[in-house]
Amino acid sequence: MHVVALYWQAIVDGGGVDLELTAIAVAVSVVVGILAAVGRIYGGKLLGGAITVYVEIIRGLPPILQLFIIYFGLSQFQINLSSFSAGLLWLVLYGVGYAVEIFRAGIEAVSVGQREAADALGLTRVQALRRIILPQAWMVMLPSLMTFLVLQVKNTTLLYLVGIADIMYQARLGTSATEQPAIMYGMAAIAYLIINLTLSRIGSTLERRQALYR
């Protein structure tokens, strides 16, 4: 059992790396995702079409392949990204592809009457979005945003493949040193379980509180 005591700190450090990357990537992809969703809905055929194609590509290709294209693929053109920037870039590009769809669904779920009323009151489009539509869309989107957050935490497991020292990396390192995979991957599983269950608990609390407000 001393293996657990010996490697627990390493796993926790890995978890810190995972959470840091997830937080940055989700923050960026939410902002870009809102803009892209607005572009997809109001941006006309060309911009809307381009964003749709982007979303299809992100959703159609396996995550590992996307990560490898960024890290290994680009090196063919002498673009050598560090592990950290390649990992973060992938999480952001992937996250934007998902966030667009979440925000589009949320915005479209707000009834047309709300938008028309805002128009009739003389609000500009930006004002209408910020003050009327997005606050109402927020409620619809909350569950899918929490799912998205958990998805991104899970996606960080792939980052050990490009050499980022996350939980999986530490667990593999520990396994090759101790030859105790059951314990090391068990610890990794528990670490992810704690992170993801906490996130979904926070999510359902938020949802309940939002529901009370209405």
Partner: peptide, 15 residues
């Protein structure tokens, strides 16, 4: 809540 990759390594190495 557990990532598929962790399940995969558990099925392959831990078992």
């Amino acid at each position: 809540a557990v990532p598929v990759l962790v399940l995969l390594f558990t099925a392959y190495y831990s078992l």
